[in-house]
Design a protein around this nucleic acid. Structure first.
Lengths: 318, 318
DNA sequence: CTACGTGCACAACCTCTGGTTGTACGAAAC
DNA sequence: GTTTCGTACAACCAGAGGTTGTGCACGTAG
């Protein structure tokens, strides 16, 4: 289907005659006739009844018209999504499995008027570069990277401490526990496939592993195969486990007996912050900040653990 | 924007490499490269980073991808809207100003899973022909036309008696009345522009005028100019009035003092029925019938007037 | 009734888009 | 190193899609 033909069809339907549509589109009447004829041949139905004084829509034409408008609107939105300036709010989240994606979905439900584009970048460095370059408007990241401070023009605010939970199959040693402590993880193998080194996630799990004496295993099936493969493997294993969050949206596999075990004393939390460029004037950005600040809860409980580089420091902004 | 290029972009994004996308689309890799390059040139941004082992989406590519999918989906829906067989439920309503459009909108809200296409035909005869030809699935009409009975394969059920109300400006003689009787309309001029002769609407108003001694004036501004022109004229006139329904969706013009006066003893009602072809197997059609029957109310009150050809007759199906 | 105006369709022609094949190049894999 | 894989560029060719010119049907004015 040719979008120019669809555009021509809409113009002709609006004006009621090919001549005027041709003038609007700055082509000849014959070209309009050809385009419409081609569209009709493509669809296999007649869209207009040719009258001596212009054209009138057939029943099929009437049914097609709103869909044609929707199609052109979708084209416009698609083009706008990459147009520099006055485009939808573009937010970077690490993945769909983590809680920040849920925060963003809540925001979208609360403010459906604000168009969102969700992207995923590799690592906090790339995200901050993209913020400064203006290719993204905001990112959910763990702010303070090890040995690295934020650039002056990047602002950040903590929005969520995500408690980690252990996910195991029924044969695992911890399967019967109602909760465990991180100290109990010593010597355990935790499976986090797709946890690329160099990202702040990798840094988080590295310090977690070093502090509590467990090992993180990043090898495994590609994340492209989806989370189901991972869940299946864990369900059948007596030694493998993985970290998930309470808020991870899961399609619970039927027929498996899987356990989600809270961690206590302390609860390791992943500290999500929202980062943005101080000079970004996008109106949706302010709305997103306001929404997240209004909705945030559970920040900085007493019995939590976080990596040293993410602990509150004197002189650091909220 | 070329939809083939968009389709190619989505295929390449899904497979992660141009070669495989080319195989899927049954074109050469070079053609894929060309199409993507053309799309990038059209949008003014780079969609892929060319890696030695395939391609990866850029930030702009990630943002564009969901819009591209939506665009292709819109194309598919548009094509399906005119595809004979397995298309959306196509319903004919007389116009957006009448109550049946509201019924259909209610149905759409109750069953958003059923795709609707709304069309408008000229006259009940054309609508019944279209039902028999299969170009529409259902129509809202006043069933029994003067001197004409329904074909055997067309079924009908009354769904709504729409009470008529008189619409006047503040200077009109009836402007202060809380209600009037149809007998009081004798000698009045009622303005119904766009009421084409030959339709069942015209037959209705003809008999209404003949019964109560008023005159129907069909000349006036084209309905293309919208209802606002009509309202403005009526607001400024001391003699003009028009019929509207209680359920007519109105954008009440600000700054005007307009009156909507009920008619009593008897209340003229317009008897809407749903008509469909007995052999039409469309699943949405049954859903529409069920919805309308569950929602119908106010049928056949005592103090109503309807044209002779629409009065309940012995032996006529409900 | 005839002459004319209006508006769409068809024919001939031409341009330039968009496909093909062939090839070069760069980065991983071995 | 050599091979393999995947992309981009060049040259070429067919046809899609534009143009101008013309015919035809119908409504309208004189």
């Amino acid at each position: 289907m040719d979008l120019n033909a669809v555009r021509t069809f809409v113009a002709a339907a609006d004006s009621g005659q090919f001549q005027e549509a041709a003038a609007d589109l700055e082509i000849t009447q014959q070209a309009v006739s050809k385009r419409v004829a081609a569209l009709e041949a493509d669809l296999g139905v007649r869209l207009f009844t040719r009258a001596p004084r212009g054209v009138r829509l057939t029943v099929d034409g009437q049914a097609f018209l709103p869909h044609a408008r929707a199609l052109l609107q979708a084209e416009e939105r698609a083009a706008a999504s990459v147009r520099p300036g006055s485009r939808a709010l573009r937010v970077d989240v690490v993945g769909r499995r983590v809680a920040t994606a849920g925060l963003l979905r809540d925001f979208h439900r609360a403010r459906p008027d604000i168009d969102l584009d969700v992207v995923t970048l590799f690592g906090a460095d790339a995200a901050i570069d993209a913020l400064q370059a203006g290719t993204i408007d905001a990112t959910f990241r763990a702010v303070t990277m090890p040995g690295r401070r934020l650039p002056a023009d990047i602002e950040a605010v903590p929005v969520l401490d995500e408690p980690m939970m252990l996910f195991t199959g029924p044969a695992h040693a911890f399967a019967g526990a109602r909760s465990i402590t991180p100290a109990q993880l010593a010597g355990q193998r935790i499976w986090m496939p797709g946890n690329e080194p160099g990202t702040e996630w990798a840094a988080y799990y590295d310090e977690l592993a070093a502090t509590f004496g467990c090992t993180i295993d990043v090898l495994g099936p590609s994340p492209h195969f989806g989370i189901e493969t991972l869940l299946d493997t864990i369900a059948d294993s007596s030694t493998l486990a993985t970290f998930l969050s309470e808020r991870t949206p899961l399609v619970w596999p039927a027929g498996h007996d899987l356990r989600l075990i809270p961690l206590r004393d302390p609860t390791p939390v992943y500290p999500h912050s929202l980062l943005w460029h101080a000079d970004n004037p996008h109106p949706g950005l302010a709305a997103l900040r306001d929404h997240l600040l209004a909705a945030r809860n559970g920040l900085g409980g007493a019995e939590t653990w976080r990596p040293t580089w993410a602990r509150p420091q004197p002189g650091k902004r909220s």
